[in-house]
Design a protein around this nucleic acid. Structure first.
Lengths: 193, 193
DNA sequence: CCTACCGATCGGTAGG
DNA sequence: CCTACCGATCGGTAGG
């Protein structure tokens, strides 16, 4: 009973889209490609989504909110700046390894959003970056971290895990635990006094 | 005298293409966009390049060879693994800051190459990665670097500088010297014993 | 280097 | 959810 179908089809389309956007890029993915991937005709996709951009929009904003929630939880904690930073690095690795396809589309394809969504997305992103950077600044001020430029540190941390998105496509031969340990230790040691 | 025009126009088109590919992506850049950027009609572009992909091809392979040359020079050196690694990090930062637009297109758009060029490009890239990783493995073996997984270390270093490509688009307020110092010290300290 | 034009494909809609 | 179809735009060519 009830209607389990509609929601599942929507999710199925969204996931197929994330995969195609990651593999071919948003612009190179046609609605006919996507329809084929979910065994539908192109026109039928419009019963589930307003437009091609609507799908991208949901992928981008859903992931943005997941990152923001993770950050908020860390901010509410009572640990040292070092502990918070370590938790944030874990968050990024976790996001990258849990839902790879979606995160890749989120990372690389948001620039294809149209206004006003593009500006809205950039604002959220900038907010995240600033709050992340504030934690590093705090750590430097307290003498927990070395006197690195917090801006450089923030972006270096962000991008240092980007290879996971590409790399997870092919057969991954490293356990998530090893990743956590090695990446986290490299970055934390690099930032230590 | 002579003919300085042809070569200059070719270069002008290539640079405009690199900028457009970086800003909008390869698939979303039309030959009409590119023609407009260099004050030509779309059809005239085909006097300078065989196809749209031909332009991308040149950007990708030129940069691949520049990276390989830099690596070769480092490999020929007699320094320790630590010194070689430091030189390679410098190479990446230098490439990223010297010719940003071209490097971004090289980094993100190569997947739009068609066969057999796609396979050829991936082979070159894999070769570069393996030789880079060999230097890290050597450093670990000699006890110069900590016992991190060399594979994780290699890719973390590669991607840790990727933000430079995006970030250089907007007004850069950090000097190249500061970048060199902070990024290099973060990574080298992170990898030290 | 241009005008004129090609077939293919695009995102999306009408109407059922 | 489909068939049928729209105008727009794509990469590229012919011919000069």
């Amino acid at each position: 009973m009830a209607t389990p179908e509609p929601k599942n089809k929507r999710t199925e389309i969204r996931e197929a889209a994330a995969r195609l956007f990651r593999d071919k890029g948003y612009a190179a993915t046609s609605m006919r490609d996507l329809a084929r991937a979910v065994d539908l005709k192109a026109a039928s996709l419009y019963n589930h989504f307003e437009s091609k951009e609507d799908i991208l929009r949901q992928i981008c904003f859903d992931n943005a909110h997941r990152f923001l929630e993770g950050l908020q939880e860390v901010e509410r904690g009572t640990g040292s700046a070092t502990e918070k930073l370590r938790a944030l690095i874990s968050l990024h690795i976790q996001m990258a390894t849990e839902d790879v396809t979606s995160i890749t589309a989120f990372n690389d394809e948001w620039r294809h959003l149209n206004e006003p969504y593009l500006s809205e997305f950039k604002t959220i992103r900038r907010d995240y970056e600033h709050r992340f950077q504030a934690i590093i600044e705090d750590g430097v001020r307290r003498g927990e971290l070395c006197s690195i430029d917090p801006h450089i540190a923030t972006y270096t941390i962000f991008s240092s895990m980007r290879w996971l998105y590409d790399w997870y496509k092919s057969g991954r031969r490293i356990s998530t635990d090893d990743l956590q340990r090695d990446i986290s230790s490299l970055l934390m040691k690099g930032l230590s006094v």
